[in-house]
């Protein structure tokens, strides 16, 4: 990787921030902080997508993930009153085996990727335009697009049924 290119410095800063944020997500004793740090990690991925020329996906990440999903999480945290302050009971005792598994997974995945791709550059081709994505959704990917709308509808209806408080008489 050529450090003289501004893009690479940009990548390194964002990547480090993302890794730090995700480490906090999985280690913090405060549920609220975990959700907010996930916002940080996802915002970083949105920035990387801009770097990769995928502005539409970056926009969707900001609007859907950060705007909607995380807000849903915060609602969930607040409604269920998971201890919002510092809490001792959030983690298992078995931290070391989990850390070994995680580090092993990272070593295998990262090592094999680096060994195969080496320093192959991402080509400087023109980025996919948003209109291409629109075309792809309604031509090549129209079936999964329709199917995913059923997934959302089912989640909506079923979620309401499970989460609503039943009237005592019915």
């Amino acid at each position: 990787m050529d450090l003289s290119i501004a893009q690479n410095w940009f990548f390194i800063i964002i990547a480090l921030a993302m890794v730090m944020a995700s480490l906090i997500v999985v280690t913090t004793r405060n549920v609220m902080h975990a959700a907010l740090m996930l916002v940080g990690a996802l915002a970083g991925s949105a920035a990387l997508f801009v770097l990769l020329g995928a502005e539409f996906v970056a926009g969707v990440i900001v609007l859907v993930y950060i705007g909607a999903i995380i807000v849903l999480f915060l609602f969930g945290v607040m409604i269920t009153r998971v201890e919002i302050g510092r809490s001792q009971s959030l983690d298992h005792e078995r931290k070391w085996p989990a850390a070994v598994i995680a580090i092993g997974t990272f070593a295998v995945l990262a090592g094999s990727s680096v060994a195969f791709f080496g320093d192959e550059e991402i080509e400087g081709v023109a980025a996919v335009r948003t209109s291409d994505i629109g075309t792809a959704i309604f031509e090549r990917f129209v079936v999964p697009f329709e199917v995913v709308s059923f997934v959302l509808l089912a989640a909506l209806i079923g979620g309401i049924v499970l989460a609503r408080r039943d009237d005592p008489e019915s």
């Binding site: 990548f11 997500v25 999985v26 995680a102 997974t105 990727s113 991402i122």
Partner: peptide, 27 residues
């Protein structure tokens, strides 16, 4: 930018996620 740098970052996030799934008790 190389493709490998993105893959290493994604491997790191994936492994951190696995650690979280294994360690956390709260749904």
């Amino acid at each position: 930018m190389t493709i490998a740098q993105f893959l290493v970052l994604s491997a790191a996030l994936f492994s951190i996620g696995i650690y979280g799934v294994l360690v956390r008790r709260n749904a």
